[in-house]
Design a binder for these strands. Sequence first.
DNA 1: ACCGCCGGGTGCC
DNA 2: ACCGCCGGGTGCC
Length: 972
Amino acid sequence: MFRRWGWGYSWDRDFEDIDLFSDRYDTNAETLSQAIRAAAAEEPDADGSVLFGQIKGTVVGLRYYTGVVNRGEMVGLVRQPQNPYDRNAVMVANVYGQQVGHIKRELAAAMAQIMDNNMAKVEGVVYSGTNNTFSMPVTLSFWGQEENKENVTKALARRGFRLEPSVSSASGSGAGGFNKSTGTGRLPKKGVTVPLTAEELKNAFDNLFEGLMESKDGEKEAADAVSTPLLPHQKQALSWMCARENKSGLPPFWEKRGDLYYNSLTCFSSKEIPERVRGGILADDMGLGKTLTTIALILTNFHQGKPLPVEKIEKNSPNKTPVKTPTKAPQTQSTVSHTEEVVIFAASEPHLSEMPQVEVICAEEPSEAVVIEEDTNKKTGKGKKKAPKRKNSKDNVVLLDDLDFAAALSGSSTNTGQKKKKSDKNTAASQSGDSSIPEVPEDPSATATLIICPLSVLSNWLDQFEQHVSTNVKLNVYLYYGSERNRSQKFLSSQDVVITTYNVLSTDFGNKSPLHKINWLRVVLDEGHFIRNPNAQMSKATLELKASRRWILSGTPIQNSVKDLWTLLAFLRLKPFDVKEWWNRVIQRPVTNGDRTGLQNLQTLVKCITLRRTKTSEVNGRPLVVLPEKAVFVEQVELSPEERGEYELAKNEGKNTISRYVAEGSILKNYADVLAILMRLRQHCCHPDLPTKTSSDPGSDATPAELRERLIEKLRLVLSSGSDEECSVCLDSVRFPVITHCAHVYCRPCIAKVISTEEQRARCPLCRSEIRPNELVEVPPEEEDTDARTKPWRTSSKVQALMGNLLRLRLKDRTAKSLIVSQFTRFLTVLETPLRDEGFSFVRLDGTMTQKRRAQVIQEFQSDSSDSPSIMLLSLKAGGVGLNLTAASHVFLMDPAWNPATEEQCIDRCHRLGQKKKVVVTKFIVKDSVEENMVKIQKKKQDLVEKAFGASNSSKKSSRIDDIKTLMEITV
DNA sequence: ACCGCCGGGTGCC
DNA sequence: ACCGCCGGGTGCC
């Protein structure tokens, strides 16, 4: 052993002798960051893990690394299987990812075994200081699933280490022996605070985004380039956003202490100013004008903190020739067709001239435009030279000898790193006199803003740019969408604004994405909750974008749990929480365990980076926006005797089946069946012809082909039931749905992941029956059956109820427009007949329509011309948030949704900024039916405590079973 | 590291 | 002298 050790030593010396030290360093730095990144990518969710115990260990080799640790600071432990000296090596890094040292090899060997087999997650905290410069004590906590506890304990015992029950509180606050440390000791004292109840937690969490609006910086006028006057609350938002982009300051939980910046949560300190978040979350309610405010931000804080100047218009720039090239990107069609201000042009670069490009509002003035460009270039050039080289981690050496709260420090007088450290100390001395907070400069060459949004609001962005940007302004807006999109990095980075969708972004991602190569001035995520699942490709793609300013726009920042917040903070690069481990340790685990300080910290974090106003918020005692009144009526519908008969027949049949499942405890195994039964009942309530005739149970001797057919049918039923089916893996709406042979529906990527991780015996996450990859069934792309049209049309009680309302409304107010909303597109089809018969002009918007067609329809409906349709048939989930249907003042909700929020969202599409009339909502509910029971569940859902806090999967399951029982009036 | 360990120098008291 | 002891060199993994 010593021999080996000796060999290692001399090898090292040889290496230094031939002066490859720096090379080796860089190589190490590279593998280090890789290792950290790899570890971060695999960071498991903290859910359900318990503390096995703790061990006191030693961090050695401090003098070789630059990372420093304060007393009480958390450290990360990263396996280094590639370490040439010990394949069991465990590296210790501080919160900023700087290496601090290694775990002593004997203990590392034990940890390696545990970590490599995923038996436990090991976390380190340096509670007490050290009295030497070579090693320091560290407290290691082992966390994992209960079932692994014994194995971990044994594995450690085998190598002579004993897991102790928590020792942190004792040694954490009590360790005063270290004479160099005056560290705050502001450690969370476990067991002192009373945990929050689920109820308190939910309330606190609900309020997380509330009450954030008071006194934010006052108002700021938009640049002249913004042609639409801003409302007071929008000016306020603009002021706040500009300040977040321009004003220097420390991020939350950072404070200046002497020459150092200190993070009071992680106890990390650094000589370098922590990079603050330039940006944040604009979480205003929908309809308050987030899009307009963002456009105002782009124009007002254009480059170098200055607005985009308004120029005079002249025709025919010699530089840029307007070319009427029909674009192939469908979304732009409507935009182009109804405004003269949009010029499609070819940019000066010759190779680009064939590419379709859209320039929104680009009336131009040649000479001035050139001047601007030159100016920009000049600045860019200058900035490049001047821009200080970004310091890499090895320059982050901090000599803490003279700082009284250092618990550990790097450097002795005898190694090759000495020179570097000396020079760094000089730098420190020269900066120390500066009391103001310096700023990490932005990359001046980054000038373009990238906007990422869901496809459904793409056209809205284009419209809004067109609408709100002054015609005297030259602003290059490029729509990066469609197969013909221009992927030239040079071209894209020379735009002022590039708009694309999450889908395009994630498609490009990993495929030489030009968007990921560009240094953006600003990246804006619209509908930021699209990235709340950190495992989604889409989310990963956004996290990899390079930008100096980052914004998230969202009307619904969090839906279910703290978890959802992580991706948002990671996108914003809110250090150090962009690394999952620190998020889990400092925020997520404490909060889910009901720790008050954890929740307070989370609240503080969110508060610092978020602006949120609701429609009911007030500015200086005045309501933010004055929306017209909204009245909601529930109209009970009585079924005709004939309908009632058919309904009761179906109900009793279904009730029997489901009762059997309940008795057998196999509801979840037959979930698709259950949903199908419920859906058929709901359809019955709307119209007797809606329920499709289903094939009878094929029995146990069904051929595989029959079984497959039936599965497809079930899948189609489940998906078309509008039941907001969520994938039990990602707990999100199902995307790329597949159905297992046990009839459970998942996203294909989600279930594929389950299968690949469980290797040989993959089991269905819901019912644990075995699943094989080749048995997953997809819905073949096939349009809806045309059954309904072949039968002679007949009416239904609900249809009658609706028509009565519509006719009365027409008599009262011929100009009134209505939305007719159903979850069943086939019901919308049914409704077309009586509407046509009564001479109503209507349009239809549902999920099957192309984006182009949608935009047309919306525009047609919103138009105030005399031949504009008075009715829109709207499928509940079509479009999505952001859809603007303010032309309508009446909403008819034909059938209740599972999720009341979905209904609210739908209503908000017309009850939003721009609505001039009182909004009247009518909900049709069939008396004595599954619909009434659904309303009961809606009410229950609204105050369901656990729902808000990411209840465990099992309790979600049981509440689902309860829901079904309620729906079917089964009492067991 | 005010340690442990290595290996060379050395060797009664 | 195939030991003990001394003191210098040295030090993560």
